[in-house]
């Protein structure tokens, strides 16, 4: 290589390197800038509503476009309750699947099953919604809900959550569909977390004569506890923001009800239903304020989830 080519190569590198660095820096900070822009627009546009209703906006249960009186309580409660139902149904399943795949599954079946579970994440949410509306609503209305009312519904206190009429649509079905939707996410994160448990720990436990059950409960789970919680929080974050599937099956009613079978609404489904047709400054502003509430809620949950996951990975590295 001649001197000239070498120096030309060198000078080109001198421009290219900082250029590339600048470019990547730009894209990385762009995300932050977009996030900041979203927050500021949400805050600015929700100011009229927040000024009119004050902090009471968060715990007022009115949603009355006739009298222009709005509060976030009903959709907020709906959002949290559907997400919790999703966790209660979804997490045990995810845990079982992740556990089976990492500990018990024969090697040849591991990959096909894992891929099948992850493919669930590729199903668009509107498909879940339509499937819920056309297939699950009749099943819930005629079989599952009457059965729940006749059994759990008769128990004092807990029974209050399962009072009729069985209409199929409602918070319970929305939670059930959300459980299916978060399943692939929670399962694959849990699998990662379980695989991160050092083999030497497991082997030592087996070496000491522990049964499989004991290895699971005494070694793997305590070691990966934080990561499991992180996986659950990620699932929760997804369940909180899901829109289309929920809108189809929750019944879209702005009412608080103790029964899980009653129709309700979530923040995102309220936005999907009403945003395009909200005329009037306070109405629109209240919807944006709802969006802000959801943003804060989801952001907090996801931040906690990420933090726990990172801690677990760090711990795995040093062990």
């Amino acid at each position: 290589m001649s001197d000239i080519t070498a120096s030309r190569f060198k000078s080109r590198m001198n421009i290219g390197d900082p250029l590339f660095k600048g470019l990547t820096f730009f894209f990385a900070t762009l995300v932050l800038a977009v996030l900041a822009a979203i927050v500021s627009v949400l805050v600015m546009d929700s100011l009229p509503a927040l000024q009119k209703f004050g902090p009471a906006f968060v715990w007022s249960q009115h949603w009355n476009p006739v009298k222009d009186n709005y509060g976030a309580l009903v959709p907020l409660v709906g959002t949290i309750v559907t997400a919790l139902i999703a966790l209660i149904i979804g997490v045990p399943f995810s845990f079982g699947m992740a556990f089976f795949l990492t500990e018990l599954c024969p090697h040849w079946a591991r990959q096909p099953i894992a891929i099948a579970i992850e493919l669930l994440a590729a199903v668009p949410s509107i498909i879940y919604g339509i499937w819920g509306l056309f297939v699950l609503v009749p099943i819930f209305q005629h079989y599952i809900e009457p059965a729940l009312i006749a059994t759990i519904g008769q128990i004092p206190i807990i029974g209050l959550l399962f009072q009729g009429p069985a209409i199929g649509m409602g918070v319970l079905l929305a939670g059930f569909i959300l459980a299916l939707m978060i399943l692939p996410f929670v399962t694959s994160v849990m699998r990662e977390v379980f695989s991160a448990v050092p083999a030497v720990l497991r082997e030592s436990a087996y070496g000491l004569g522990a049964t499989r059950w004991e290895v699971v409960w005494r070694v793997v789970l305590p070691y990966s506890r934080v990561g499991v919680v992180g996986a659950i929080m990620l699932g929760l974050g997804r369940a909180l923001g899901e829109t289309m599937a929920v809108t189809f099956v929750i019944g879209n009613a702005h009412r608080l009800s103790l029964s899980l079978m009653a129709p309700g609404t979530t923040i995102s489904s309220t936005l999907a239903n009403e945003f395009t047709e909200a005329d009037g400054a306070i109405y629109t502003s209240s919807l944006i304020a709802l969006g802000l509430v959801l943003f804060v809620l989801t952001f907090t949950v996801l931040a906690i989830g990420k933090k726990l996951l990172l801690r677990n990975v760090g711990k795995g590295g040093t062990a």
Partner: peptide
């Protein structure tokens, strides 16, 4: 009251 959207005392909503 009367309006394009009201605070429904009962029921569920479809779009």
């Amino acid at each position: 009251g009367v309006g394009k959207a009201v605070e429904w005392p009962a029921g569920l909503g479809g779009k």
